[in-house]
């Protein structure tokens, strides 16, 4: 199923499908590893639940929920 990165439960993972963000922000995210097709899993979050840390391409990258909401991924049902 398709869901946003923000809805991914802790420990969940999936394949990144798309970035619904301005081209410049999308390019910065891709440079950090968020290239469509890559495996993304959710690690911890800051206390309070925002920002959230994602594991992508061997790295850990923190994103705010508002950004994660605009990134979609496909997860196994």
């Amino acid at each position: 199923m398709i869901r946003t990165l923000a809805d991914l439960p802790s420990g969940g993972h999936g394949t990144l499908v798309g970035l619904d963000l301005p081209a410049e922000d999308a390019a910065r995210l891709m440079a950090l590893g968020f290239v469509p097709g890559v495996q993304v899993s959710r690690a911890r979050s800051a206390p309070g639940g925002d920002p959230v840390v994602f594991r992508v391409d061997g790295a850990e990258v923190a994103l705010r929920r508002e950004t994660a909401r605009r990134m979609t991924l496909r997860t196994e049902p």
């Binding site: 990258v61 923190a62 508002e66």
Partner: peptide
């Protein structure tokens, strides 16, 4: 414009 906060967490 709200610039998305993105920060790599080094080990």
């Amino acid at each position: 414009e709200r610039v998305p906060f993105m920060m790599e967490l080094p080990p």
